[in-house]
Design a protein around this nucleic acid. Structure first.
Lengths: 209, 209, 209, 209
DNA sequence: CATGAATGAGAATTCATTCAT
DNA sequence: AATGAATGAATTCTCATTCAT
């Protein structure tokens, strides 16, 4: 019994479960058909509830997509957080390994569930607020990456003259690009080549020595 | 008198002008409110024509967005094409300069017209076909960048062991990231810092030497 | 409790009732104003439902007119079928009586509900498919009448040299004509005179003996 | 030079010609696609004039269909009128021959131009006024046929006890039926069989003697 | 006179949301 | 609490008609 269901009556547990099912169904629908092409009825039908019931769990269509996105972001952040410990790294070698692990974790998330990329890609088209939200999401990752860089600079295994924040943005851009590339060609071999190329650029640049 | 209006009667010129005005208006509407929140009536009202008139110029709502996007992409490609000559570069120095110029050109496009990024960002949410189109657009840029890298490898000023294609993708990812970053913080100073960071990563990597 | 409502819940009964009300209302509207001049809103307003509700019962405007027409034809065929038993007739006298009964039944249908003729008359103008349908309807009646004639020829109370099928068509033509005549002058006396004249022509011809 | 064009200037003649072309084109369009599915633009395009020009010749869409129908009816009446001379007939034999000639003339009109039946059939669906007009048309033919019958009764070659008017209606009904039948099966052989059957019914009835 | 660009009234249809059962 | 019947705001698109060129 997890923390969230602890102390709940059977009914409350059941409600929480339905709530989760709705989020799941909505996730799938939004990813497959897009937000606007998805009707509340589609979501409800997918899990076999009446579409009126939907409104007992969520305020409206906007509310559900908000939850779906939030949920998704939480999952991604959690997955990254598991690998996320800038302080645990103290040499370039360890950093490289850490980078590889993060790359793998991300690849996992996106390739094991194609809905993830689909949804994120189309989310910006939902409305102004959601577009802002997506930009925020991308922006949020900057300090995360920046923390690693900062740590590396402090410990001396990264260039002393790194302009940390924009460099973090650049790196995250590469990751974003790899996500998009993965949508068109999800072959693991390609993913791996791209991942390796990103690390090569990161550590050594492209210039001949 | 430009090539496109040469030999046209006054009426034909007027029609072409209206057509352009509609595309412009639609561009603005889509960028500001998003595709789905924009009605044909909004577009027509913006330039003071009846909404029936719209349908004399474009088949339907889908048709206009197609034209808006195509137009936009053409403009971007044209802007990049002006700087696009891999063969004209023969040393790393020249290449760095070339990269800087391309970065500047891109920055120009995106910062001088905030609608550009807005529209591109939300375009993927219009429908499946458009999402595909956006992914294609990103994919199209890969061989462009790859051509530069290829040339550099051949001439020896870029690493001999570059895995050209995925490296090109990685670089384009950084550019994409800088576009997104520019949407949140369009300050030229930030843009410039990011642009510099990208070039730094590209050429020298982040590792201390 | 009729067979069609047996075993239905109150709600199902209510739905079936609404469905019927819509068909009725559409029937009236189409007959009064014609198919093209009738809007879905007119039909809905006539029975005091929202026009969106209409679409819960019928696919679209074409769907409802299809049902209205089918319904109408079914009613006519049922009314005729009640009198329809070629084999039950074995003398000319009986045949004359039978003919009179059928004529009366038809007159009943058309005169008790003026919408019937109105709708049938204008139905051919709805679209190509419906025109075909109306021609089919008329064609369908030929074998029906032909069966009577055939039977009479076999039993010897009708001319041995009758060209059965076209003769049946001719007779049905007279019936059709009487329907049209009834639309302009629905007076029962006129109807009766016409009916008698038809029978006179049928049995004795117009030539002096 | 016919009476209608006599004394006209070249311009007036040209206008009259265009007017006629428009009626012809409208006739074809209405017959092929039906009144409602036909746009003014379709009519204009068919004869290669601008659709604005249409309005220099006819008030509006309703106006043109009125003219098309009137024109058509005039043509039919004219064709029938050529054979129409009740007084010229003085024996049953002559009457039979006359009937046959009229039948042939009608068959000619309807089979040589399939648009005729198409248009008449769908005309009733145009609007209330036109439906009335079609009913009027059918009613108009009654006195025409009745005149023949009257004449025949007076001269003694038709039954003395004929109820002339409704009998005329009955006969016209058969003719109407044959027109409809001809739409589904325009084969001349079928037409001829039907025509013969109508005459057989008319003169001798269907009863065995 | 001919033209076709512009117009907007009007119609069909969809779907998020409400609420009685 | 669950349901789905009802609703109407909103949107797309058509086409007869007008009128400036």
């Amino acid at each position: 019994m997890t923390a969230t269901t602890e102390g709940l009556t059977g009914l409350e547990r059941r409600k929480a479960e339905t709530r989760r099912e709705i989020i799941e169904a909505a996730f799938t629908c939004f990813a497959e058909q897009g937000y606007h092409a998805t009707g509340i009825a589609d979501i409800a039908a997918r899990i076999g509830i009446g579409h009126g019931t939907f409104y007992r769990y969520f305020e409206n269509k906007r509310d559900i997509v908000e939850h779906v996105i939030t949920d998704l972001i939480d999952r991604i952040v959690a997955a990254l957080g598991a690998e996320n410990a800038p302080d645990a790294v103290s040499t370039l070698e360890e950093y490289r390994a850490q980078t590889a692990r993060i790359g793998t974790a991300l690849a996992q998330i996106f390739s094991e569930d194609p809905r993830v990329a689909s949804l994120l890609l189309s989310a910006a088209g939902i409305d102004d607020a959601m577009r802002e939200r997506m930009l925020d999401l991308f922006a949020t990752t900057t300090p995360l990456t920046a923390a690693y860089l900062e740590h590396g600079v402090r410990l001396g295994y990264l260039r002393a003259d790194l302009d940390v924040e924009p460099t973090a943005q650049a790196i995250n851009g590469m990751i974003l690009g790899s996500v998009l590339a993965g949508m068109r060609d999800p072959a693991p071999a390609q993913q791996e080549r791209l991942s390796a190329a990103i690390r090569a650029v990161m550590y050594d640049g492209i210039a001949a020595r």
